[in-house]
Write a protein that binds this DNA or RNA. Structure first.
Lengths: 274, 274
DNA sequence: TTGTTCATGTCGGCG
DNA sequence: CGCCGACGTGAACAA
């Protein structure tokens, strides 16, 4: 581990240290007054101001102001860094092809330069994603509906892979779409795509049910689900159980299967993870 | 403008400077060996390693490794920073409510601390977004189709706001969905949602056309569009004209209006921007 | 605050 | 490398 820092360096000094840092594979931060120009998937320009520029050894460039989580300008990983001095200004350029794009940072003045060796320890242990929700459902399919039997995950269809494919107690095909958070209209459309594709695949006479599993759903989306004959089951991705305010279980006398459907899954005695 | 930098400071020194920097509203960078723990919308932990931590005066926290554009961990703007020393470690905590979430960075060692005044100049001039494409179409509606008349943008429907609502030469309602880049299935679904909602709104006897305007479309999506009776028009968001390889203009003898539809817009003499 | 959608989204996985 | 969908998406804007 090492850290090189220059205070108010000349452009020539910065240029030299930049190239050394690129060579070593350091992470570089440059704080200074600069303009930024981007051209590629879109086009942008940013007037002069003091910003923090980060150059990563994987080729990425981040230009940060004092606000927001998202950089005001950037270049993705896989780009190439190149630095030069022209017209009394230091230029740091990031380029890539496919898509072709270029980011130019022109420094009028560099207030601070740092080269840091940031190697090691970058794998994150994350819980609470859609993957976890799926595991909950596979561990105890009755969470979706009593009698539900998962048959396949990521099952392919003409509309793409569906999260969980299975059958209900009557042997009717069921498509389950999982969302880790409150869902909007797009999730309903996505589920509908899968249901329609499967319906076409299995034959026009076949019934196919679609169930959206998420912690909650917006009003408009709830209406869309109703119109499409799709169903909703409330599940929290963390606990794998119905959220606290478990209203809107979808059965507002509009679900198409009016026979004795038991939607209330019996909680409690799930054996859980192996 | 000022920049304070400490090289291998003690935790006590860092703590002092951190609180000063928070007070001044500086942007802070801390480079050091640390662990990171997050709990909120999800839960994550990150083992010990050398990382660059950025603390913005708007409350955001970014933890960057030597790879990727996206921080390995973060806290959004609007959070609150708090620093303390416990058990011989420096803890920097970011918290917010709604949703409730906490990010803890525990430093075993700080290699470098900087406090930077990054005020000013953060508005970006950006071109090439969907907004530009819309302007192109509104300037010359024949780009979509000869005879097309835009009536309203962001028109509300039961399925949400549609990009452009208008009429074709026959007075048939048309929903136009704009995309700045090559589109996948979700865009087709989105358009279909709007068309269906409008169809319902105007009455079951009414015909409603849906046109997807984008530079290009994937094969599967093209099939989806066909099945739904939706149309596609190829337009480049930058130039507002058909892209170079202008194949797949949608008229593969499957569009439902087989009367004399003139899809080929006359290029060239568009008056353009006012 | 909630709902909805765009984004230079970014990122990972699979074919 | 393209397609496809998740993401602690973030950010802007309207209701």
């Amino acid at each position: 581990m090492h850290a090189t820092t220059l205070h108010r360096p000349t452009h020539r000094e910065t240029l030299w240290e930049l190239e050394e840092a690129f060579e070593r594979g350091d992470l570089v931060t440059v704080f200074g007054r600069c303009t930024v120009d981007y051209d590629g998937r879109a086009t942008s320009s940013l007037g002069s101001g003091n910003r923090l520029v980060i150059l990563k050894p994987d080729g990425s460039t981040l230009v940060h102001t004092d606000e927001k989580r998202t950089p005001v300008n950037w270049q993705p990983p896989g780009s190439e860094h190149h630095a030069s001095v022209r017209d009394g200004r230091l230029r740091v350029r990031g380029t890539r092809r496919n898509p072709a794009e270029t980011l130019d940072v022109h420094f009028e003045q560099v207030h601070q330069f740092s080269a840091l060796s940031v190697t090691g320890g970058r794998d994150l242990d994350l819980h609470g994603s859609e993957e976890d929700l799926r595991q909950h459902v596979l561990d105890d399919p009755s969470l979706v509906e009593s009698g539900f039997i998962p048959l396949e995950t990521e099952r392919e269809s003409a509309a793409g892979p569906m999260d969980i494919y299975g059958e209900d107690g009557d042997g009717t095909p069921v498509v389950v779409e999982l969302k880790r958070r409150r869902v909007g209209p797009s999730a309903a459309s996505q589920l509908q795509r899968y249901v329609e594709a499967l319906h076409r695949e299995l034959g026009d006479e076949s019934e196919v049910r679609g169930i959206l599993v998420a912690p909650s759903v917006t009003d408009r989306t709830s209406a869309l689900l109703d119109e499409e004959g799709l169903e909703f089951v409330a599940l929290d991705p963390d606990t794998g159980r119905p959220p606290d305010g478990d209203t809107a279980t979808g059965d507002s006398e509009e679900t198409q299967n009016t026979e004795e459907t038991e939607k209330t899954a019996d909680t409690g005695d799930s054996e859980g993870t192996s």
